[in-house]
Design a protein around this nucleic acid. Structure first.
Lengths: 114, 114
DNA sequence: TAAAACAATGGACAATGATCCACGGTTTGA
DNA sequence: TCAAACCGTGGATCATTGTCCATTGTTTTA
């Protein structure tokens, strides 16, 4: 599919898609056409971009996402890949714990002890 | 206390403390001394800065933190303040849910279905 | 077939959240 | 007393994460 359709399906803007591609989060191929140099995006880009949107909201950086993408590449040792992903999971759990702390703090403030 | 001691106690750098102060997250008074214009920070700054550090890790912005600080000021209607804080709590809970989703996704990837 | 919509490229711009640096003045401690 | 460590101010710089724009070319559609 072309970039417009991909943007439509994912809710991620064309500019942002191009930005992500420049930063190695997704890749595309050149279209079959001989008259243009439009890019062709596969269905997996839809899945990835939707994941990225959620992951960004969860506080993951582009660099985090790139390391995850790299770690799932065929060229990557599966054991290394699992370690990378496990470390991101650990970070996310820490962040979730931090959020719990902040929520507790704010509940206290709201209930008058702040 | 002076800024160096505050930085020492909180782990927040002097530059960052000054940055936060410029942005209205904390305030200080001028020291008693007539020979310098050093700032004087009260103990509550320690508590606030530690909270800020956790809250930033939890994904809250400076603007979020400022609105919370404003909402706890004496000049603020307590009911308004509670609403502001409640809305931040709600946002944090949504973020926590998003983190759970991402963790589940990554667990799946790690376990081979990705 | 002409206008509208779409695409690629490259670079400018912006907001956020810091960090760093130079300067001149102050305090501290050896 | 004198150097080292500290302080305030102001501005420069930086990384991150996009967004916007101009230009040029292509496709779609009315």
């Amino acid at each position: 599919m072309r970039i417009g359709e991909l943007a439509e399906k994912t809710g991620v803007s064309r500019d942002t898609i191009r930005f992500y591609e420049r930063n190695g989060l997704i890749s595309s191929s050149v279209s079959d056409s001989t008259t243009n140099n439009y890019r062709d995006y596969k269905d997996d880009c839809v899945v990835k971009l939707k994941f990225f949107a959620g992951a960004r909201e969860a506080g993951m950086s582009i660099a985090d996402l790139r390391s995850i993408m790299d770690s799932t590449a065929d060229s990557c040792d599966p054991e290394v890949g699992r370690r990378v992903i496990q470390s991101k999971i650990t970070e996310l759990k820490e962040r979730a714990g931090q959020i719990e702390n902040v929520i507790r703090f704010l509940e206290n403030v709201k209930n008058g002890s702040g």
